[in-house]
Nucleic acid binder design. Structure first.
Length: 594
DNA sequence: CGTGACTGCCC
DNA sequence: ATTCTGC
DNA sequence: GCAGAATGGGCAGTCACG
C-alpha cells in the first residue's frame, strides 16, 4: 500500500473520537492491506516496529526528528522548534515544515509502507560512531519524499505514538470484526485477546487471522520463554472499598521493586519486565537463586524484585534496584552492591499445567509447592483478610516492613489471572492514599512547559519549587503535570500571563529551563508519594547528598490553588529536609518481620 | 577521555 | 507511576 | 468502567563533541 493511502486512512480516523467509528475505519484499512503488510502496520500504529520483548528500538524522539526536519527542509533548527512549540504536536509540526519546503522539492519517489517500515528497521539497526548522522539521513530522505500528510504520520511514528486513540485493544476489536466474521462477535473478540495475551505479539496475531482466520491462531498457546502480558491492579480509594468490592480477600504486601515474570525451563531461566522487556542479563543472581529454590521441572512465575541492604537485609528504596535495570556493564559488581530479594506472588504455569484460569488460592498453592523459600527467594507476605481490624493491622505491618501498601486479591472462582487486564480482581491500596499519611506540599509555581497533543496551546506541566527563607530563594522540587482538568488547563496561560517574564528571576535556583518563566507568586497544593534524591532538582542542594537535591515522587495537583498563601508561606527547604530525614528514619527504625 | 543531550523504560 | 475524558 | 492520552522522577546506555 502506498504510504499516502495509509495516511489518508489515518487522517480519517483522526477525524473522530467515537470508538465504534475508529474501529470500523481501522477494519476497513485492515481489509485493504496485503497479508505481508498488516503485521507491519499494526506495529506502526503503535509507534513501534517490533513487539516490546524483541528489544530493538528506534532511538528517535522529538529532538532528533526536529533535526531531521531541519535537514530535510533547510529551515534552521530554532525555526522548527518554534513550530513544534506552537503546534504542540511533532506530527503537524512536520506537516507544516514539509508543506513549506514542498514548493522547491523536485524529484521524489512515492513512499510505500514497505519502504517506510524498511527505513525504520535500518534506523533501529544502525549503531556506533556516525550512526546518528546515518539515521538523520534516512529520516530526512523520507521527509524529502513525503507529502505533508505523510510527514505528519511518519513523524508521529518516529516519536512512538500516532495519537489516534488506537492501542492494542482497538486493533483486536477491528481484527475480530473483519477477519472472524463467521463467529459470534464477542466470542471472536475474546478468543483473539486470549491468544494475544499468550504471545504478546499483535503483528503475529493480525497476520495470522488475516491469512487464515481463526485457524491461523488456534495453535498459539502458552509457551515457556514467551512472555505473557502482565495482569494489573486497580487502585482503591479507601480501605472500605477493598471490602465493598470483594468481601474477604487475600492481602499481600505491595513491595516497591521491579515486577518480574520468570520463565523456568530445564535448560534455562528467562526474566521479563512488566512491559515484557527481557531482563535476564541484568539479574544473574536472581537466575541462580531461582534455580536453587525451584522444586519443579518448569514453570512461569511472577514476583517483585526488591533491593536489599547486603548487611542488614532491609529493603532499600526503589531507586537502588533501578541501578540494575538495563545495565550492560559492571553487572557482577552491582550485583554484590545491590543484592535483591524476589518476592514471588503468582504461578501461571507449572509442570505441564496452565494456571491462568485457576483461582487465586489454587495458583498460590501451586506457587508454594513449586518453591522452597531461600534467603533471596521468598513468597510475598500473604494473609486472608476478613475484617477491617485485620486489614488495618496487615496494612500497618506492610508499612513497617517498608512496603508501599497492600494488594487485595479476589479469592473467589472468578479471581483468575487475566493477562493484560487492569480490573478489580486485584486492588492496590497504598500508604500515600491514606490522608493521614499523605505528604501534601504547598509549592510555588516558577515556570511552565508548553503542552503537547490535547494540551497544545496551554501548559503541559508547571515547574514548582519550595521557598528557602535563609537565602530568600526558590528551589525547584518537581514538575507538575497531572491532576489538572481541562477547564483548569485552558485557563492557566491566562492565570500566569501577568507573571510571565522573559528569563529566570534571579532568586529562582534551577537547573531546568522551562518554556516560560514566572515571577514566584502562585502557590499550588501538590500530593506526592515520597521524597527522592534528585540529580536535577535544586531543593536542599548538597544537603542530603553531594551534588544532588530533593524531588517529589509521583507529584500531582490536588485541585487546590493556595491563593491564601504568599510564596514565602510555601513549604520551605528546611521542612523538606526534615521530611526527608523522617522518611529515612522510618526506614531505619522499622522492625522486619521474622 | 569526560560531559551533556537524548532516548527508552522502570516506577 | 497518577489523573482526566469520551464513549 | 474501559481505553487512551496527557503528565511525573530517575536510572543506564548511546552518541556527538570538545
Amino acid at each position: 500500500m502506498n504510504f499516502a493511502v495509509f495516511s489518508e486512512y489515518l487522517e480519517r480516523i483522526e477525524g473522530t473520537t467515537k470508538r465504534l467509528e475508529i474501529t470500523a475505519m481501522l477494519g476497513e484499512m485492515f481489509n485493504a492491506l496485503a497479508p505481508d503488510e498488516i503485521d507491519k502496520v499494526c506495529y506502526l500504529l503503535l509507534g513501534k516496529i517490533y513487539p516490546d520483548f524483541v528489544g530493538i528500538e528506534l532511538g528517535i524522539a522529538d529532538a532528533l526528528i526536529q533535526r531531521a526536519l531541519s535537514i530535510a527542509s533547510g529551515l534552521k533548527i530554532e525555526i522548527v522548534s518554534e513550530v513544534l512549540k506552537n503546534e504542540g504536536d511533532i506530527g503537524t509540526c512536520a506537516e507544516n515544515v514539509i508543506r513549506q519546503k514542498k514548493q522547491t522539492a523536485l524529484f521524489s519517489e512515492p513512499l510505500t509502507i514497505e519502504r517506510v517500515y524498511g527505513n525504520l528497521c535500518k534506523i533501529a539497526e544502525s549503531t556506533g560512531s556516525g550512526s546518528q548522522d546515518y539515521k538523520l539521513k534516512l529520516i530526512a530522505e523520507m521527509f524529502h519524499d513525503a507529502q505533508p500528510l505523510e510527514a505528519r504520520y511518519i513523524a508521529r511514528i518516529l516519536a512512538g505514538s500516532l495519537r489516534l486513540g488506537i492501542a492494542e485493544s482497538t486493533i483486536l476489536d477491528a481484527l475480530a470484526i473483519v477477519f472472524l466474521k463467521d463467529m459470534e462477535k464477542n466470542v471472536a473478540r475474546e478468543l483473539l485477546e486470549d491468544k494475544y495475551n499468550l504471545c504478546s505479539d499483535i503483528g503475529l496475531i493480525a497476520k495470522s487471522v488475516k491469512a487464515q482466520g481463526m485457524k491461523g491462531i488456534e495453535n498459539i498457546g502458552l509457551k515457556i520463554g514467551v512472555p505473557i502480558r502482565a495482569m494489573l491492579a486497580s487502585r482503591a480509594a479507601s480501605m472500605e472499598e477493598l471490602f465493598d468490592r470483594m468481601g474477604k480477600f487475600a492481602g499481600e504486601y505491595k513491595y516497591d521493586g521491579l515486577r518480574i515474570q520468570a520463565h523456568i525451563s530445564n535448560s534455562d531461566i528467562k526474566l521479563y519486565s512488566r512491559r515484557l522487556e527481557n531482563l535476564t542479563e541484568q539479574f544473574p543472581d536472581v537466575i541462580r537463586n531461582l534455580r536453587s529454590a525451584f522444586r519443579g521441572r518448569e514453570g512461569i512465575f511472577e514476583g517483585e524484585c526488591v533491593p536489599i541492604d547486603p548487611d542488614t537485609d532491609e529493603m532499600l528504596p526503589f531507586q537502588e534496584v533501578s541501578k540494575r535495570r538495563g545495565r550492560k556493564y559492571g553487572i557482577e559488581e552491582t550485583m554484590k552492591q545491590i543484592p535483591v530479594c524476589l518476592f514471588l506472588f503468582d504461578c501461571l504455569y507449572l509442570d505441564g499445567r496452565e494456571y491462568l484460569k485457576n483461582s487465586y488460592l489454587e495458583r498460590r498453592k501451586a506457587l508454594e509447592t513449586a518453591f522452597v523459600e531461600t534467603e533471596h527467594v521468598k513468597f510475598s507476605h500473604m494473609k486472608i483478610i476478613e475484617d477491617m481490624a485485620e486489614c488495618e493491622q496487615f496494612f500497618n505491618e506492610a508499612i513497617s516492613a517498608g512496603c508501599e501498601g497492600i494488594m487485595a486479591k479476589n479469592t473467589g472462582p472468578e479471581g483468575v489471572y487475566k493477562p493484560g487486564k487492569r480490573g478489580f480482581l486485584w486492588l492496590k491500596y497504598k500508604r500515600e492514599y491514606k490522608s493521614e499519611l499523605a505528604d501534601t506540599l504547598d509549592l510555588v509555581v516558577l515556570g511552565a512547559f508548553a503542552g503537547k497533543g490535547r494540551r497544545a496551546g496551554t501548559y503541559g506541566a508547571l515547574l514548582t519549587g519550595v521557598y528557602n527563607p535563609e537565602k530568600d530563594t526558590y528551589e525547584t522540587i518537581c514538575k507538575l503535570g497531572t491532576g489538572f482538568d481541562d477547564a483548569t488547563l485552558s485557563q492557566m496561560p491566562q492565570k500566569f500571563a501577568t507573571l510571565t517574564v522573559k528569563s529566570r528571576p534571579k532568586n529562582v535556583i534551577s537547573k531546568m529551563e522551562p518554556d516560560f518563566w514566572f515571577v514566584p507568586m502562585v502557590v499550588v497544593e501538590v500530593q506526592g508519594a515520597e521524597l527522592t534524591i534528585s540529580p536535577v532538582h535544586t531543593c536542599g542542594y548538597g544537603i542530603m547528598k553531594e551534588g544532588a537535591g530533593i524531588a517529589v515522587r509521583f507529584p500531582r495537583f490536588t485541585g487546590r490553588w493556595r491563593d491564601d498563601k504568599a510564596p514565602t508561606d510555601a513549604t520551605t527547604t528546611g521542612e523538606i529536609i526534615e521530611m526527608y530525614k523522617k522518611q529515612l528514619k522510618r526506614i531505619e527504625e522499622r522492625d522486619l518481620p521474622e
